[in-house]
Design a binder for these strands. Structure first.
Lengths: 247, 247
DNA sequence: CGCCTTCTTGAATTCTGTCAACCCCTGTGG
DNA sequence: CCACAGGGGTTGACAGAATTCAAGAAGGCG
């Protein structure tokens, strides 16, 4: 069933954009292929010219960049419901690579088909633009994170973001899987693996955050938010405002 | 004359997107108002709901964020020809503020008028999306910069980017105005002002870069590129590929 | 002239990275 | 069944990078 593959993604778009039933059906009817991706596999290499966008069904993907010296920097995470590589629709040649951090499942959507839907339903185009805008805001917030926060704050902030993105954030006992190693976390936080290890220990000691074997436990959400200086407004969209403009 | 105000911006779009003469005229005919902005003025405050996009005609704008502790982080620079706040078209409520780093001139384009043009000319919409994609790629590269480069590399990289963005980069004696203080440069590079000062001295000593009173001199472009580990491909668009898809 | 901002400098401190070693667990092949 | 290799996590000692604090110099501007 296509609908199973796609509900997560149509739901995602619906969080910030109004879609008619017809538009939803058009999206759900897109010709797609489901693919299983091995852990540590490259889905899109830098410089590669792509013909498709993707939807994450299961697992965790990341956009990645490498410096000349060979050190790695993760630029963004993609969880179930996210649409990585959406920008390839307008800019087929990839600048940064797309990578699977664990065994994942994705749905591939050919550009040609998506372009047809966009042409027929301009509101779908708007919804995709908002999705890109959200990704852009997240990138900006990462700049703040890397530029102006300490190691512990950075890590705490990253976990706050992931809790909100996975929709698991709640006042008490937030739990979710985040299947990455400390080394990968270091590549996301712009830190060394050793220092990430020590920072995680400090957070554990303070009973603010546990991260073990790809599983996160946040006993007290507010405490983590306070450590991180987290304000999640950059992850949300003002749905009502868009409705006024596009509905 | 509208054309004078807008040529920079239509030219910018043309660097990555094909526009027919009719589409160019439609853009040039947009109703706009030109505004002078004082140095250090806030153009768009966070949380503000905007009704317009902008084009930078002269000067230098920046997107800015503040952390809880009050430290500042610059998220992006906008030079003449850039369109800051383009994302407000789809997401009117601003997440991050827009700020004038020096006395500047901008052109304001009402969303309503721009939406009309987009509706009539889908290719214009594509061009604007590419412009947003470029901004997004720059943000990703900044994440790499802040996460994985040393102070000197970061600063060198920033200057490389600005030289390319202003179109002044050349093999010998690149010169351009970059009207910011060392403190602002620190806010962009995620460093302290003191350390920026020392890093600039080091770059000056090595005869790689001079930055004095808002004026930049790069005697040897390749030398700066080598220090920075700069690869400017994230600033370019593969025009030919887009033509194949949209033209 | 005095005031303000920017730039500069030195010294001490804090933060983070590097290096090297070890532990634990898992999977593999003999 | 065991030996082994490999990856991930942990630890300690040390080195290096960047910040902070404090003060002074240089210039613009009322």
């Amino acid at each position: 069933m296509h609908s199973q593959r796609f509900h997560s993604f149509v739901d995602r778009l619906s969080t910030h954009s109004y879609l008619t039933e017809e538009e939803r059906q058009a999206l759900l009817a897109l010709p797609t292929s489901r693919e299983s991706i091995a852990s540590q596999a490259t889905i899109v290499a830098p410089e590669e010219v792509g013909q498709s966008c993707y939807v994450v069904v299961k697992g965790l993907l990341a956009r990645i960049s490498h410096t000349r010296e060979g050190s790695r920097q993760i630029l963004s995470f993609y969880v179930a419901g996210d649409m990585p590589h959406l920008q390839s629709l307008m800019h087929p040649r990839a600048i940064f690579g797309l990578f699977a951090l664990c065994e994942s499942e994705i749905v591939r959507i050919p550009h040609t088909a998506l372009r047809e839907v966009i042409k027929a339903y301009p509101r779908v185009s708007d919804a995709l633009s908002r999705e890109l805008g959200r990704e852009s805001n997240i990138a900006f917030e990462w700049i703040v994170n890397l530029g102006r926060r300490t190691a512990i704050e950075r890590i705490a902030h990253l976990f706050c973001e992931m809790a909100v993105k996975t929709g698991t954030a709640q006042e008490r006992d937030t739990r979710f899987t985040f299947p990455i190693t400390q080394t990968m976390l270091a590549d996301a936080a712009g830190l060394s693996a050793v220092h990430v290890n020590r920072s995680l220990q400090a957070l554990r000691k303070e009973k603010v955050l546990r991260f073990e074997q790809g599983y996160v436990e946040i006993p007290n959400w507010q405490a983590l938010v306070d450590v991180a200086g987290f304000d999640g407004s950059y992850l949300e969209s003002e749905r009502s405002l868009h409705f006024a403009n596009s509905g």
